[in-house]
Design a protein around this nucleic acid. Structure first.
Lengths: 234, 234
DNA sequence: ACGCAAAAAATCGTATACAATTTAGCCATC
DNA sequence: GATGGCTAAATTGTATACGATTTTTTGCGT
């Protein structure tokens, strides 16, 4: 059976952590499709490490919800079910307004500039063509939310958001319809504008609607991916 | 060097998961003091498993923030710094009102009865003496928040709360002053009463103050534990 | 040909082995 | 008596080995 295609760094010294990050990036960047099997031996061969380290990385990713490990069968890139997807977005709606307010508290002019900078980059990527620009655009879109989380100065929240954004990316990969909601970029801008003008209530309002829009763009009818095992076993 | 004292089940078949849970319980129950070294060999001997499984469990616990693993030095029961503690409670203040509202949406009479039942048990434990009753009381106090989280029906939120409650318990073990804020029990009751009466705004308000009170009961002046390594290395 | 059972291969689960690093002990020296 | 450095012990990091489980292949009978 064909098994993952993971970016193969050659010769470079790798640790469990770096393997985890590489696979994570590959999943979030959608270079690894949901459901793809991640064979311990194969991944180990790609990184020139033993299964021991690969197992550690896969277990960590399982904890983040990015891969499922099935006993005696192996690890697979997570294939979030619609219900799971709903829970992820429900959690984001619950958390992100609070993050926004908390971030705003600590925000200075330089922070705002960083945000604007990110938005500029996001807009630039939207103009470009090609799959790699598309991927970069999706990543940048997630980075907006992550940057807000980092501005809270709260490492716990930041980690929660890391996980939520990563899993969201997986959900969008599975159920997303429109190439990308290009309105997302506009909504990001509106949120920053609201923050700048000091209208946090409005910013939070916009944020919630923004998340709603992302979720509304999904088509979560079952069996989109036709993975029969997933469809029946869970 | 003396190293952990972990509850030793004898002969029972154990997996990584059960080891993780046992250590987790021991930490949350405060039978393992913060800073205690968890030697792979020793833990493995107690559970009659190889270091491989122990390592897996310790890595998972590290991800939850319950243990710190220092490269080439080993795993230690986490010793949260004051700043970390503040972030944990800040995150709880941010999340728990939302959980409350979400839980209330799905709450039927049977759910309310479960909550009342938990509060009764909590009250009963408060009347008892002895260290084990004290531990059970602390656990029950955390269970109140976890039960609310479970009532949201949202597995993601539930896992976040699991982590937050576990880490809170560690913080309280380190910095807690008054035996236990016995007012906590009263506050739990007030929250449930507010929910029953349908006044969610009031319930959320009470919840936030409840978390504030827990945090206010801490004495987080530095060096309570006088672990010099921790003081300098982080 | 098709289906089913048994053998073979592949893959995972766990333990053990060995290398790398840290820690502890000890003696010489100031 | 304290300090510095050297050696030995202990501990972790990683790879390998082997048993258990699953998956695939093979081959037989219908």
């Amino acid at each position: 059976m064909k098994t993952a295609a993971v970016p193969a760094d050659d010769q470079i010294d790798v640790s469990t952590q770096s393997i985890r990050d590489s696979i994570r990036d590959a999943i979030v960047d959608r270079r690894l499709a949901p459901g793809t099997k991640l064979s311990e031996a194969d991944v180990g061969a790609l990184f020139n490490v033993s299964r021991t380290l690969v197992r550690g990385a896969l277990q960590a990713l399982a904890y983040e919800g990015l891969v499922n490990v099935e006993k005696n069968r192996g690890a697979f890139v997570a294939y979030p079910l619609p219900e799971e997807a709903r829970q992820i977005f429900a959690t984001r709606r619950l958390i992100e307004p609070g993050i926004l307010r908390e971030a705003a508290k600590h925000m200075g002019p330089s922070h705002l500039q960083h945000l604007r900078q990110l938005l500029t980059e996001e807009g630039r990527l939207m103009a470009e063509r090609g799959q790699s620009a598309r991927r970069a655009e999706i990543k940048a879109s997630g980075d907006f939310h992550l940057m807000l989380a980092s501005m809270t100065g709260n490492a716990v929240m930041q980690r929660f958001m890391d996980e939520l954004v990563a899993r969201s990316s997986l959900v969008i990969a599975l159920y997303g319809q429109s190439a990308i909601s290009s309105c997302g970029h506009q909504e990001h801008q509106d949120i920053v504008t609201a923050i700048e003008s000091g209208d946090l209530d409005r910013a939070c309002h916009l944020m919630i609607h923004h998340i709603d829009h992302i979720e509304a763009d999904l088509d979560m009818r079952e069996n989109k991916g036709s993975d029969l095992r997933e469809a029946f076993k869970l």
